[in-house]
Design a protein around this nucleic acid. Structure first.
Lengths: 155, 155
DNA sequence: ATAATGAAAGTCAATATTAGTCAAAGATTA
DNA sequence: TAATCTTTGACTAATATTGACTTTCATTAT
């Protein structure tokens, strides 16, 4: 029942490789063939599911012998993680990216499950309930950054 | 057995699945077809019969491979206390009153210190940073109510 | 060296595929 | 009869898929 769309399946496939390895390196057309989609769909999957907010770094090369390489990075490795995250968020963030950020913080133990849920609820589209999207995204950014800044003084 | 309208029948159908399973995941148009109703009637059924007050959590996704997923959750004992608070808050709350609400939840052991702090930061005037006071107060109300609704069940 | 060629990946907008909203019309109940 | 609940459908929004066109890079030919 789960993940009926191909993008989700490709995402899972790539993540299953990343579960065992430091990074994946693919040939775009090969993966596209494997799942019977057009090559640009691979870009779509990467763009929507392997963002820096999700903790992934992507690099690629065109031309002969080209590739796409996805690496899982630990955003919390270096001392000023919070600064990094705050920069990444900027003054606006979509719900999807916010989910990714909070997920990363949870995976890295900065937040426990309950706290992560609270933040997601507080920044949920329906919770905020504003019709202006720019306002919604900027509110979400302010709330998350406010919380991140608070976490800094707590620990 | 009064009034077996279609909404009731659809409700029973979904609940019968939930009797055996953790959750139901449907394709809206399929269920609509199955019962010969327009798709939006499924939304009506969900909105009127699968509320969080009744212990149901609903999530969905649009686009290819989209779905609606209904999950039955365990309501906690605090549920009616939270209901009362939600009523009191209504659609607007000042920062001062919000502080009092969060404080009492902390004293009642519903929230720990860290969680209480998170909520206060998220709803702080400076965090929200909107000029319009009415908007600020209504946003604060929405955020706190969203969180209270989340606290009704265990995740 | 330089130019031409081909083999990748990137971009972007059109289209397709779902679900959500809202208000009007109809039905039922108090 | 008035109030409430249900049904319907037109319109909106989010997400996914596709393909034409562009850019980059390596290799081969001049």
């Amino acid at each position: 029942m789960q993940s009926q769309n191909i993008s989700d399946i490709i995402e899972k496939y790539l993540k299953s490789i990343l579960a065992d390895a430091e990074h994946v390196e693919i040939r775009r057309s090969e993966i596209a063939d494997l799942f019977n989609v057009v090559p640009s769909q691979i870009n779509y999957v990467i763009k929507t599911r392997f963002t820096i907010q999700n903790g992934y770094l992507v690099e690629s090369k065109r031309g002969g012998g080209g590739y796409i390489r996805i690496e899982k990075v630990n955003l919390l490795d270096d001392a000023d993680v919070l600064d990094t995250l705050i920069q990444v968020i900027g003054d606006s963030i979509t719900q999807r990216d916010a989910y990714a950020v909070v997920q990363s913080l949870y995976e890295d133990g900065v937040l426990n499950r309950r706290e992560a849920q609270l933040i997601l609820v507080a920044t949920d589209r329906n919770t905020l309930g504003v019709d202006d999207h720019d306002l919604e995204n900027s509110l979400r950014a302010r709330i998350i950054i406010g919380i991140l800044n608070h976490l800094r003084y707590e620990s």
